[in-house]
Design a protein around this nucleic acid. Structure first.
Length: 443
RNA sequence: GGAGAGAUGGCCGAGUGGUCGAAGGCGCUCCCCUGCUAAGGGAGUAUAGGCUUUAAACGCUUAUCGAGGGUUCGAAUCCCUCUCUCUCCGCCA
């Protein structure tokens, strides 16, 4: 959420900046609502002040035992008018709030301008894609060839965009999460947290998934009841819970409505959770394989920091995600997302893309964003600053990493001619010393 | 799921219709006193808005005593709904 004062004083400029993201701010509507708001709010407060003064008078008079009927007559109609203006004010502020909640964050000055993925800017590359002297397979063929990856059964259980892993592959998947968590807690200074996967709508508003992106989520209704609780307003249509699309939601919301002491900053949290996404609007994209699933695991990094330190923290956070790929010896590149490709809440985002040989391209495996005060303002997440005053925090999040996609990268980059897959050295201790997953011999 | 108790400022805690944004204490900040230490004295100390202001401060003003609604000229206080916490019982991985 943007600061409404900023919009009031600098609308033209902000509108221009938002246009770079492809967002059209409703200038005219906003201005007329604001004018109305100002008039009605002033009037309301005048009436309230009068009521308070008169009520106080009555109190005084009564305590002196005087007759108050004259004063009472004077304010007979005040109540009605006040109620009317209060209602009007509430409606207008509701409308303004609604507009505000759907406005994306302002991109940072350093963000490259552009319309789509094609305009993202490459920052750096690490590692050299391996040259294979045999015909390579994609991760689906490798996994199925090993007899450890089973999409058919997953489809029977749940449908498309689900997967089922067995044996050493399931263990490798688990090894990856352990390895990532251990690295971030032991080397990068994060505190591990275990969080709820079912989250209420307030939290989803806090990090920006609601109200605009409900169709991307899975909603959960206690006892399977989906009837509208309160048909009078939209809030009544909200589900009891939503399945988290990322651990960013529960972790970041830990500081919702909190005032954090200065000395507790920066807060650095890591969590491993499953993530659930409806993937509405991505029909036909990455339909095969593990790349785009309704359910996938992710190790998420969240930093809650002092506003002056958030850009340094973003570089650090991206570095932490990169560390995992370096330890796994997986080639990658880092992209600065352009204005048109960034997510709703982000002021600046680096995507880390891992090399996938079978796709002959780099694919997103981590997305690291500085949301500045955008989420904090929605959440009222604050800290007590140097002069003792509450001020908004900055929040950052990044994958460190998406586990399923890391598994894909390992299968493809570590594949051998005979269909076996070598286990990266960094993971072998998590695999009971196993250094290779081999194709089972036919009997 | 059943029965009961509770939710007040950074913390503790008083306050059952009127001069209460809220006593008192603790903590914190500043000042005075004290040659260290301990103690003492004084002042200050919620948040979010609106108007005013080039901006800030100041000033004026509104709202907020878990949340929302109601009664009333007036609500921390009375009524209703909800949320959360605690205790006991039941069920449960």
């Amino acid at each position: 959420m943007l600061e409404i004062q900023q919009l009031r004083t600098d609308l033209e400029n902000i509108s221009k900046i938002l246009a770079k993201r492809g967002f059209t701010f409703p200038d005219a509507l906003f201005n007329s609502l604001e004018a109305e708001r100002k008039a009605i709010q002033t009037r309301t407060q005048e009436l309230q002040a009068k009521r308070n003064a008169v009520s106080k008078q009555i109190g005084h008079a009564k305590s002196r035992g005087e007759d108050v009927s004259a004063i009472l007559a004077e304010v007979a109609n005040l109540g009605n008018e006040l109620k009317q203006t209060e209602t009007q004010l509430e409606q207008i502020q509701g409308k303004l709030q609604q507009i505000l909640l759907e406005v994306p964050n302002l991109p940072h000055d350093s963000v490259p301008e552009g319309k789509s993925e094609a305009d993202n800017q490459e920052m750096r590359r690490w590692g050299t894609p391996r040259i294979f002297d045999f015909e390579i397979k994609d991760h689906i063929n490798i996994g199925e060839g090993l007899g450890l990856l089973d999409f058919e059964t997953a489809a029977k259980l749940s449908g498309t965009r689900f997967s089922l892993m067995k044996g050493e592959l399931a263990r490798l998947h688990r090894a990856l999460t352990q390895f990532m968590l251990d690295t971030h807690t032991q080397e990068n200074g994060y505190t591990e947290v275990y969080v709820p996967y079912l989250i209420n709508s307030e939290s989803m508003h806090g990090t920006g998934q609601l109200p605009k992106f409900e169709e991307d989520l899975f909603a959960v209704y206690a006892g399977g009841k989906t009837e509208v609780k309160n048909p009078e307003n939209d809030e009544g249509n909200l589900a009891d819970f939503y399945l988290i699309p990322t651990a960013e939601v529960p972790i970041t919301n830990m500081v919702r409505d909190e005032i954090v002491p200065l000395e507790q900053l920066p807060m650095k949290y890591v969590a491993h959770t499953p993530c659930f996404r409806s993937e509405a609007g991505s029909y036909g994209r990455d339909t095969r394989g593990l790349i785009r699933q309704h359910q996938f695991d992710k190790v998420e990094l969240v930093q809650i920091v002092h506003p002056l330190k958030s850009y340094a923290a973003l570089e650090q956070l991206a570095g932490h995600a990169e560390m995992i790929l370096q330890k796994l010896q997986l080639p990658y590149r880092v992209m600065a997302l352009c204005t048109g490709d960034m997510g709703f809440s982000a002021a600046k985002t680096y995507d880390i893309e891992v090399w996938l040989p079978a796709q002959n391209s780099y694919r997103e495996i981590s997305s690291c964003s500085n949301c500045e005060a955008f989420q904090a303002r929605r959440m009222q997440a604050r800290f007590r600053n140097e002069s003792g005053k509450p001020a908004l925090l900055h929040t950052l999040n990044g994958s460190g990493l998406a586990v399923g996609r890391t598994l894909v990268a390992i299968l493809e980059n570590y594949q051998n001619a005979d269909g076996s897959v070598s286990v990266p050295i960094a993971l072998q201790s998590y695999m009971g010393g196993l250094d290779q997953m081999v194709v089972p011999k036919r009997k």
